[in-house]
């Protein structure tokens, strides 16, 4: 499907534009195009995320939401045949796709929480320490301090403190997802990306994750992909609407859900199209 030019992009990528809500840009996605095996998946996407805010990426399935998220910490290239063909992402002013940028260091600083939580084949405590043991970002803290503080932040400490050496696979899905977030936090990330983190969870666990996102927001910028519009409204400050690999509109969540400028966005939000 080809979208007429005048319908694409709402948000001016260049610097002369004064950012809303006066925060500095953490992520600045500029004219990003991605192909899978030659097939175009993202076409000239522009987006930005602000510090201490939650950016929600919404849009119909197949619009490239997850792909965009995966380009933001360079996990896209784990998929065979996926290629960034043009554009770049600036993270705090540094180019993520610049020459000589080590993808592993990008991933260390920008962590991803996936749709389906998976336990690594080790104990709960070791799961938390997975990244720390590699990156050695102990910063003077002991093992136990890191485990405790990370599990505390995701509200899992009281539930698992007596069985830290149990295999992590024994946790429930909701607990496991929080463990995955703790695992990411242990890396001391500077931003967190979440790919439909609640779609495998029941309503109670979903509520806990949402609380957690709001609690983390003061320290970290968060980008979340969701197909749940109500969730986007509840937790995000900014919303980006993707359609068929193009960024149709980005604005504060408030404005996008009440006064969308783009016709397709309006149709999607009012439920005319699924």
């Amino acid at each position: 499907m080809i979208v007429p030019m005048e319908m694409t992009c709402s948000y001016a990528p260049e610097g002369d534009h004064e950012d809303p809500a006066d925060g500095p840009r953490i992520f600045d996605v500029r004219d990003l195009s991605v192909t899978f095996n030659g097939r175009s998946v993202l076409r000239g996407v522009n987006a930005m995320a602000l510090d201490r805010q939650v950016l929600a990426i919404v849009g119909p399935s197949g619009s490239g939401k997850s792909t965009l998220l995966r380009t933001m910490n360079r996990t896209l290239e784990l998929t065979l045949d996926a290629r960034v063909t043009s554009g770049d992402i600036h993270f705090k002013g540094e180019r993520l796709y610049g020459n000589g940028t080590d993808p592993r260091l990008v991933r260390k600083r920008i962590c991803m929480v996936h749709q389906k939580p998976v336990a690594f084949p080790m104990s709960i405590g070791e799961n938390v320490l997975f990244g720390v043991r590699f990156h050695k970002n102990w910063n003077g803290r002991t093992k136990d301090e890191i485990i405790r503080s990370c599990l505390d932040r995701v509200g899992l400490w009281n539930e698992v403190k007596d069985r830290l050496s149990d295999p992590a696979s024994r946790l429930s899905v909701g607990q496991l997802q929080r463990l995955c977030i703790a695992r990411a936090l242990a890396n001391d990330p500077e931003a967190i990306l979440m790919d439909e983190p609640c779609s495998a969870l029941d309503p109670v666990s979903t509520a806990r994750i949402e609380e957690l996102i709001l609690a983390m927001k003061p320290q970290l910028p968060i980008v979340i992909v969701t197909h749940n519009l109500a969730q986007a409204r509840r937790i995000s400050d900014q919303s980006l609407f993707l359609y068929d690999g193009q960024s149709l509109e980005q604005d504060t969540t408030e404005r996008i859900f009440t006064h969308p400028k783009n016709g397709r966005v309006r149709d999607f939000i009012t439920g005319k199209v699924g």
Partner: peptide
């Protein structure tokens, strides 16, 4: 980016000695 300098941490994308 006008705000990059404010936020850019000392850690950079080339990494530390142990990482290397």
């Amino acid at each position: 980016m006008h705000n990059a300098a404010v936020l850019s941490p000392t850690a950079n994308m080339t990494g530390s000695e142990t990482y290397r």
